[in-house]
């Protein structure tokens, strides 16, 4: 791909295609409708289930609209749902996730931007090796690093703390952030850097006065990637966050998959929606930027 973040997402100006017969158009729309149904169904079921009472759920009819919609399950999920013996809802998880999210997103973007900028200078010796190592890290399953990291973190005394989980997110966010910013900065015209050097700006001056003011697209994409990625993380939060900082995804899984007592499907689904709310909001608000983020996440520039 061309420069990840800078490549404009193609706009919807389709080319004149051979006109299909009416039957073909009907089949086309039918296929699209079926597909849309497949994709929308889980969201629909999540929503209607969360609005039903347990009595109604037990009668079956998972597709049926709620007879008397109520937000009771939502408040229960927020403040009463049980994980093990503790019944304080998943609101704790929401605030934990927020406390993890803000510093993790900010720090990983800053570090990624600086690293990507430095690596976009091709003259740096060993830069390619460092970049390759970072990329390899990005593709490795976490299981390869997790245990030694736990030991390292306990040795330093940050295992199971907010600082620990934030650091882990910065560590594992670095490859994609670096890739994104490096590609974006490499796509800027070389002449711009040359002009700034002739003007006497140094490495950091070029970064702050010339490059950073032009970085808005990359910063937006980075923020989308990191906010959804870190919010949706499960395994790192599970291992590194510690009992007091468990993120929302971990609490949600505990609520739903804890085996004590009767399963409250309406509360479970309400909790599930609540957990998905923030990334969904980011998705619906960011529109085409989200697609750019996807492309930037895995494609070279």
């Amino acid at each position: 791909m061309r420069a990840a973040a800078s490549a404009p997402v193609p706009t919807g100006t389709p080319v004149a295609r051979p006109r299909r017969p009416i039957a073909g158009r009907v089949a086309l729309y039918a296929a699209l409708a079926v597909a849309a149904l497949f994709f929308i169904t889980p969201l629909y079921i999540m929503t209607v289930t969360s609005l039903k009472s347990m009595d109604e759920i037990r009668q079956g009819g998972i597709f049926a609209l709620p007879a008397s919609p109520s937000l009771k399950a939502w408040t229960a999920a927020w403040s009463e749902a049980c994980t093990g013996l503790k019944c304080t809802g998943i609101s704790d998880g929401f605030f934990n996730s927020l406390r993890i999210l803000v510093p993790s997103v900010a720090l990983s973007i800053v570090l990624g931007a600086v690293t990507g900028y430095a690596l976009s200078h091709r003259r740096i010796r060993g830069g390619n090796v460092l970049f390759a190592a970072l990329l390899l890290g990005a593709f490795m399953p976490y299981q390869v690093f997790i245990y030694p990291l736990v030991r390292l973190f306990s040795a330093v005394g940050i295992y199971g703390s907010l600082a620990g989980i934030v650091l882990v997110h910065v560590i594992f966010g670095l490859p994609v952030m670096t890739l994104l910013f490096r590609n974006y900065y490499s796509s800027l015209p070389v002449d711009l850097f040359k002009a700034a050097r002739v003007d006497g700006a140094g490495f950091w001056q070029i970064f702050f006065y010339v490059v950073l003011p032009m970085s808005t697209p990359a910063l937006v994409v980075a923020a989308i990637l990191q906010i959804t990625g870190i919010w949706n993380d499960f395994i790192l939060g599970l291992v590194f966050a510690g009992r007091d900082n468990l993120p929302m995804t971990v609490l949600l899984n505990n609520v739903v998959n804890s085996s004590q007592g009767e399963k409250l499907y309406n509360v479970n689904m309400a909790a599930t929606i609540l957990t998905a709310l923030l990334p969904l909001a980011v998705y619906f608000l960011s529109g085409r930027w989200f697609v750019r983020g996807i492309a930037a996440g895995g494609v070279k520039g």
């Binding site: 002449d191 711009l192 002009a195 002739v198 006497g200 010339v210 003011p213 032009m214």
Partner: peptide, 21 residues
């Protein structure tokens, strides 16, 4: 010597104007 210390000014094909200034 660094470019800025050479007593030169330079004009580029792509203009290379700083877009946010």
């Amino acid at each position: 010597a660094e470019p800025k210390d050479r007593g030169i000014g330079m004009v580029f094909q792509s203009y290379a104007l700083y877009p946010r200034m």
